[in-house]
Design a protein around this nucleic acid. Structure first.
Length: 418
RNA sequence: GGAGAGGUGGCCGAGCUGGUUUAAGGCGUACGCCUGCUAAGCGUAUGUAGGGGUAACUCUACCGAGGGUUCGAAUCCCUCCUUCUCCGCCA
């Protein structure tokens, strides 16, 4: 959510951001409703003041045993007036809230304008593996341990069922990544995998992503589409002390996505599924340090890829590719040798105070003074299916066996999976 | 699922037979004083949001959320959420 004062003062910046993010909403609607609301509030507050004074007079007179009928009648009239004005304001408030929820965050000034084609590759690491045979896609290499048909029988199409070493590999990676985060000072969180509409609104999956999420209608809950939701909402409506910052969290969660209308070749195998596992990093930062924190999250995520020996590149997303709530976002893409393409395995965003304002997450400055909104950041660290794709496809050998990077070989108890 | 008890400012906690409470008091925090340091003590200030004014300042709202009763609601009524205790059910 954007600050109302900002909306009043800088409508053009907001309009530009709406355009840059390809949203369709008109700020004029908000401006009109807001000024109408303020005019009404002026009247309401005057009437309330009058009524408060009358009330006081009634109270005094009654205590002295005097008659207060005329004050009470006046007050009654005011009450009738007030309730009709208050109803008007209530309607406007609903409009305003809807509009405010629909304004996207403002992209940072260093974010390139335009769509996906304007994303900038900031850096890359590692050599793209070469083979003296034709490398195969993961669904071939994982035949027997990755069984989409079995998953389909259980839950419908586009779900994952792993067995044997694939199941163990996933569990091992989750555990290793969490330990990696914990060792760098993050606190591990195990949170609910469902969340209320309020939580979804605070992190801004609602209203925009409604159609992309699974909803449990009977209890009005959503299956979380990312660990960002529970980890960030941990501090919804909370007041932190400056000394508490930064709060550095990590946690494993499954992520549920309807991926409505996305079928086809691009989505074969593990590329795009309805449920995937992910380790998420979330950070609550002092506004002055969020840029630095963003870099740290990025370096932390890429550090893991370097340990695993997976070639990657880092993209700075252009405005049109930026999510609704983000001010700035880096994507990390890793190489898929079998499919010969880059796969997004992590998205690291700085939301500045956008989510904090929606979720009322604040801190009290060290020297006292008014509470301020924190900055929230998050990033995948990392998403499992595509990481597994890359490990399997990049590590494949001519006979179809898979060579594991040293660190994983140790954890899995074998250097080569057959 | 059933019964009961709670939800008040950063925290604790009074008020809850409706009207000088426009939320007491304490803790914490900030500043100052005093004690030759420290501890203790004393004094003052200190909720959030919005509006008006150049300004000292001032007005309005907020006591889990939303409705209702009333001239007037933290206080009475209804619905919902949530926490705790007991019972039931359950991996």
């Amino acid at each position: 959510m954007l600050d109302r004062k900002f909306l009043r003062k800088e409508p053009q910046i907001v309009a530009d951001a709406i355009k840059a993010k390809n949203e369709k909403i008109d700020i004029e609607l908000w401006i009109n409703a807001d000024s109408k609301r303020r005019a009404l509030m002026l009247q309401i507050e005057d009437l309330r003041k009058l009524r408060n004074e009358l009330s006081k007079a009634v109270s005094m007179k009654k205590r002295n045993g005097e008659n207060a009928d005329s004050e009470m009648n006046k007050s009654r009239e005011i009450g009738a007036n007030l309730s009709s004005l208050e109803n008007e304001v209530a309607e406007i408030d609903i409009q305003l809230a809807e509009l405010e929820n629909s304004f996207p965050n403002i992209p940072d000034s260093d974010v390139p304008l335009g769509g996906e084609e304007n994303n900038v590759v900031l850096r890359s690491w590692g050599e793209i593996p070469q083979f003296d045979f034709a490398p195969r896609p993961h669904w071939d290499l994982m035949e027997g341990v990755f069984q989409p048909e079995a998953a389909g029988r259980i839950a419908g199409s586009n779900f994952i069922l792993f067995r044997g070493w694939a199941a163990k590999l996933q569990r091992t990676l989750i555990s290793w990544m969490l330990d990696h985060h914990i060792n760098s000072g993050m606190e591990e969180i195990w949170a609910p995998f469902v969340a209320t509409p309020e939580s979804m609104t605070a992190t801004a999956q609602l209203p925009k992503m409604d159609d992309d999420m699974y909803r449990i209608g009977r209890d009005d809950l959503f299956l979380i589409p990312t660990g960002e939701v529970p980890l960030t909402n941990l501090y919804r409506d909370q007041l932190l002390e400056e000394a508490d910052l930064p709060v550095r969290l990590c946690g494993y969660t499954p992520c549920f996505r309807r991926e409505a209308g996305s079928y086809g070749k691009e989505n074969r195998g593990l590329n795009r599924v309805h449920q995937f596992e992910k380790v998420e990093m979330v950070r609550f930062e002092h506004p002055d340090r969020s840029d630095e924190a963003h870099q740290e999250l990025l370096n932390h995520a890429t550090g893991m890829l370097e340990l695993l020996g997976i070639p990657y590149r880092v993209l700075l997303l252009a405005s049109g590719d930026l999510s609704f709530a983000a001010a700035k976002c880096y994507d990390i893409e890793i190489w898929s040798a079998g499919q010969k393409k880059w796969l997004e395995v992590s998205s690291l965003s700085n939301f500045r105070d956008f989510q904090a304002r929606r979720g009322n997450m604040r801190f009290r400055p060290a020297g006292g003074g008014k509470p301020q909104f924190v900055h929230t950041l998050n990033g995948s660290g990392l998403a499992l299916p595509r990481l597994i794709i890359s490990l399997v496809e990049n590590g494949q050998q001519a006979d179809g066996s898979i060579k594991l990077p040293g660190i994983l070989a140790e954890l899995m108890g074998t250097e080569v999976i057959r």
